[in-house]
Design a protein around this nucleic acid. Structure first.
Lengths: 367, 367
DNA sequence: TAGCGGAGTGAATCATACG
DNA sequence: GCGTATGATTCACTCCGCT
């Protein structure tokens, strides 16, 4: 991070608004490192329109199919490269991106993500509960789409609400395959004629899971291919800030109206199950200092082995000395050990994990 | 396709044998347009950094073999490009290829397939019924692998046994996501010490479905990364000819022994046991994600006590937080509670058990 | 013998705060 | 930036031994 003066003043980041125009050009006008999460549903149709610029202006000899094919891929790759590069610039250092696609485009997107130094965390399968059948019986029913979840760089400290997703999945760890119905019924937006307003409107359930799992309230979520605004609608409901970019005016109009109807949930509903990692760390020595355990008192493990508490909060068992974790690991011959759950003390004939004392202390300290 | 005389005579195609050596070099010695189907399970280039322990401190036996290591994406791409080019040369004009991989490599493989003019028919998801969990709770459980099914060129008249696959799927069109258990138990090959003989042995069920669906009896199936010979074993059983290429002698020896034990099925014996479709487990969180219940909405029990729904599908009632079952149990002072029948929501002045919504969701999901 | 409980294990890019 | 210390973290299934 350099602090030298930039040639142009850093623009302000607009929030909770739809920006009109080509996504690459619009992104270029936004400031560096300003977005927490990007959700992108890029076009995958290889009938490249005006927005997809060819890398060169050579005339294609239409009689050679293979070359034409390659040229189309090259144009798509150039487009992918350009918007992913801008996306990377906009992301905060610990930001992340989701991209959704099908086999037509997702391999190219995934390879380019890796080439640009994004770090893939998972590929996630949206398994459609009610896909369109393959009427001609020539292939397998195309019953899924693929999403890629990646951080801006390897080593980034991305947001992952593990416990919240576990809760959403009935108490078991969320998997990389998500069963969610396609968007239809009342959720599907229609135009005046009653036709679907957007050909590939995504279900809100998909965005709900993504935003609950990988953002926090107050985060900024950017969707560079906003369409009719599913990302914005779910983000607003969940108390996240959002920015949409959309080229087609008709989609923008529909999205504007849609977003106007969405109400933010109250903050109580936005709370999610939290991880123990976020809790305050309590040094074991505090239990001794505060008299919750007396120096000289013996702790025991599940196998009946005991260790003596010393005044500085270390333990001694035979000739093994150290922290509650170190002594536990040593006795088990294990690479590590959580001393809080490993060691127990005796009270009134009962054997109680020392973790109970930690919880008690946390409660007394107001957290 | 030119027809000019070749500098060397076309070699004969060996069949039902394992060829020793590097797959690219061995493929170079095989004749053009001689193979009906290729199944390839190339190295994934996993890029594992350290060791991983389970919560009980046992060590995960990772795939850290030398054959899976590449210096860079560029090196992996060069390797992919080379073997896919040879594979294309070996395929008959109407031949097809399957490649399996994970997010570490599959995007690069898929992009290169497209670059070389292969035509993707489907990407198919192997949804593992029993994947290894994410022990540290840092990401989603990596519960699937991706397969790409492609013809040699656009327009090829590929083999697709639509009805056979439909039969395998209880009379319903086969989808692009396949639920199959990982290879373990008696099927998993072990070495003399009782350890797994190959780190990434694929289940025969996977190959069974692929070969039944996309080859005919008598076809020639090539596996350039033969390993311990799953492809050959299933091909032989199903009356297909097979060719395996494998560099590691230890794998070849095991595969030879394995293939010797396989017997071709008689033509009437191709029935397979299909798993009974079990009732879908519906996480309560899905009702929230899908908007059937709104976050912030109040649920009530029979005694008129209420709890608020949160975005992650947990409830909060006063200071009690947790799943619908946990909060119900807590309020009742009971060891357990079926939240589905315990909690009710209000609609149009009526009080309705949330189980009604679960039934509705099951119906919408086609099960 | 059937049933139950504990141990073992699987293609995995699996931590972070603090000094 | 780097080394050290803390301490958080698992699902489905198979096999084996015991009752």
């Amino acid at each position: 991070m350099t602090t030298k003066t930039k040639s142009k003043a850093a623009p302000a980041l607009p929030r909770n608004t739809i920006l009109a125009g080509d996504c690459i050009e619009v992104m270029r006008a936004l400031p560096d490192a300003s977005v927490d999460l990007i959700f992108a549903d890029p076009p995958y149709n290889l009938q490249l329109k005006g927005s997809l610029h060819r890398p060169n202006n050579t005339l294609v000899d239409a009689c050679d199919d293979a070359w034409d094919q390659f040229d189309s891929f090259a144009a798509y790759d150039a487009f992918t490269k350009a918007w992913l590069a801008e996306a990377k610039r906009l992301l905060k250092p610990d930001g992340a991106i989701w991209v959704i696609g099908s086999y037509h485009n997702i391999f190219r997107v995934g390879a380019e993500l890796q080439n640009q130094g994004y770090w893939i965390l998972n590929d996630v399968i949206w398994r459609k509960a009610n896909p369109m059948p393959n009427f001609r019986g020539m292939r397998l029913t195309n019953a899924h789409e693929t999403m890629i979840w990646a951080t801006r760089t390897d080593g980034a400290k991305y947001t992952f609400n593990y416990e919240a997703l576990k809760s959403l999945n009935e108490g078991v760890q969320m998997r990389s395959d998500w069963v969610i119905p396609i968007c239809n019924g009342g959720e599907r937006l229609k135009d005046e004629k009653g036709d679907k307003a957007h050909p590939t409107q995504k279900p809100e359930a998909l965005l709900h899971r993504i935003l609950v799992g990988t953002t926090n309230p107050g985060d900024v979520v950017l969707d560079p291919f906003f369409g009719t605004g599913t990302t914005g609608a779910v983000a607003k409901m969940l108390g996240r800030d959002w920015i949409g970019i959309e080229r087609e005016e008709s989609y923008r109009q529909i999205a504007e109206a849609r977003l106007g109807d969405v109400r933010r949930l109250d903050s109580g509903a936005l709370q999610v199950a939290t991880s123990k990692r976020q809790e305050v760390r309590v040094p074991f020595g505090q239990l001794v200092e505060r008299g919750m355990l007396r120096p000289g008192e013996m702790l025991v493990n599940a196998r009946g082995q005991s260790a003596k508490v010393r005044v500085d909060g270390t333990l001694i068992a035979d000739d093994v000395k150290g922290s509650i974790h170190q002594v536990g690991a040593k006795l088990e011959g294990a690479p590590s050990c959580n001393g809080w759950t490993y060691w127990h003390f005796r009270r009134d004939g009962q054997t109680v994990p020392i973790d109970v004392l930690r919880q008690q202390l946390r409660a007394e300290m107001g957290n």
